[in-house]
Design a protein around this nucleic acid. Structure first.
Length: 426
DNA sequence: GAGACTTGTCATGTA
DNA sequence: ATTACATGACAAGTC
């Protein structure tokens, strides 16, 4: 009996199944984990899963070698919520965490296998990044496409890469010089259309407003200098009288635009092809709006209102300016909204792929766990039967496995007790 | 010419 | 009340 007992205890993995306050030799809690094995006890007549080796005498180590040909990472590292997959109903109130802990302790190779799975997951993340990169490439392609019919005078290329107040107003210089230029080619002075306030006479805004219209010749005021005498003359390709405005932005820059952005917005890229005016540009040109669409759209509200106060605009002009501002901001918002939508789609697709891979791993892991559990139960049943075959009462009658179980006390002694009886202090 | 796609705009809701 | 922003829906243009 001692020999049989030692053999029984030699299955070290069984100790991992021990549950406090439970009969260590009661396998009923684990039977519930195994739908393939009946709960009728450990009789040799238990049905065996097809995948279980023919003999129950196989060494546990050999069992594990066969059952875990590869490593599997801990799923919990991938998704802490996935322990729900282990939450099989367990009589006796054993939580899923307990079972998972047992599982990990029961199958040491499983840890390495789970690590392997974890690495695969990291690799998947790299692939995810690759997808995003492809997506961004597409965005760049889109961003390079000018929309010549944009009512608000903006385009994807001039839009900030992300929706942020900083980008929208301050940071990113426009790729489209047309944003800052109305494209006006009229030779007549539109400045005469406005009644400049005395305090603003000769102001830089006044100059700037005209500088926004390439091709416009300005009425020369006392403090205005010919454009070819300005500080930024070195830009050879510049033929339009926009330098005073650029100088103003570089010196003052109180409009919310960065110096670089304002500077570049005032220096259109040379283009041999004339850019057709969009609807708002044409309207602004018709109504002779004295400042650029870029400012109308991108200035902060305070600066925008201040800009409006510097000119006396009629109702039609004010309405147009506010419409341009509204449409321009909404255009950027729509672009950002669509970009976020696409990014969300890519993100969800990646998550879906990860979840599918995790589900596949879990299914495989669960199957392997069930197979090994059945093997262990079979082995335990063998040893249990072997132990009981050597136990006899005073009259020489064998004890029944169905009626008695083995329990170990704290002092290490093993007792044969009826199944419906629990030893005190255990 | 039909359909998919892109982009701008409007209407509406929210902060 | 105003403003900015987000987003669905629609229209127009493009491929």
């Amino acid at each position: 009996m001692d020999l049989a007992w030692q053999e029984l205890m030699a299955i070290t993995e069984l100790q991992e199944f021990e549950v406090p306050n439970e009969n260590p030799f009661e396998a009923i809690p684990y039977l519930s984990m195994e739908p393939m094995v009946s709960q009728g006890g450990f009789g040799m007549s238990q049905p065996q899963p097809e995948s279980i080796p023919a003999t129950c005498d196989a060494h546990p180590a050999a069992v594990y070698e066969n059952a875990y040909p590869e490593m599997m990472p801990p799923y919990q590292r991938l998704n802490p919520h996935m322990d729900m997959h282990y939450s099989l109903p367990v009589p006796g109130g054993h939580g899923s965490s307990r079972m998972l802990a047992n599982t990990q302790a029961l199958h040491p190779p499983l840890m390495s296998l789970l690590e392997h799975m974890n690495m695969k997951t990291r690799s998947h993340g790299i692939a995810k990044d690759g997808v995003i990169n492809l997506h961004c490439t597409g965005q760049i392609k889109q961003a390079c496409t000018d929309d010549l019919e944009s009512d608000s005078g903006l385009s994807l290329g001039s839009s900030p890469p992300l929706a942020s107040p900083e980008n929208a107003v301050h940071g990113v210089p426009s790729y489209l010089p047309a944003d800052g230029m109305m494209g006006y080619a009229e030779s007549e002075s539109i400045g005469e259309q406005y009644r400049m306030r005395p305090s603003l006479l000769g102001s830089v805004d006044y100059q700037q407003s005209y500088s926004s219209y390439p091709g416009t010749s300005f009425p020369t005021t006392a403090n205005m200098q010919p454009i070819n005498q300005q500080t930024y003359q070195p830009i050879a390709s510049l033929k339009q009288p926009v330098l005073p405005t650029a100088l103003h932005d570089l010196q003052l820059n109180s409009s919310g635009l960065t110096r670089l952005g304002a500077y570049q917005s005032m220096y259109p890229k040379p283009s041999s092809v004339p850019v057709p005016l969009n609807r708002d540009q044409r309207r602004a040109r018709t109504l002779k709006i004295p400042f650029s669409l870029d400012k109308i759209v991108n200035l902060p509200v305070d600066d925008f209102n201040e800009l409006l106060t510097q000119f006396t605009l009629n109702d039609a002009q004010l309405a147009l300016v506010r419409d341009i501002r509204r449409r321009g901001k909404n255009k950027v918002a729509a672009q950002n909204c669509r970009k976020r939508k696409l990014e969300n789609i890519v993100h969800l697709e990646n998550e879906l792929g990860q979840l599918r891979a995790q589900r596949e791993h879990l299914t495989r892991e669960r199957l392997e766990f069930q197979q090994n559990l059945a093997i262990i139960k079979c082995r335990l049943s063998d040893l249990y039967t072997q132990v009981f075959s050597q136990l006899h009462d005073e009259e020489g009658h064998p004890y029944s496995v169905e009626e008695y179980s083995l329990q170990q006390t704290n002092d290490g002694n093993i007792y044969l007790v009826p199944r419906n009886t629990a030893l005190e202090g255990e």
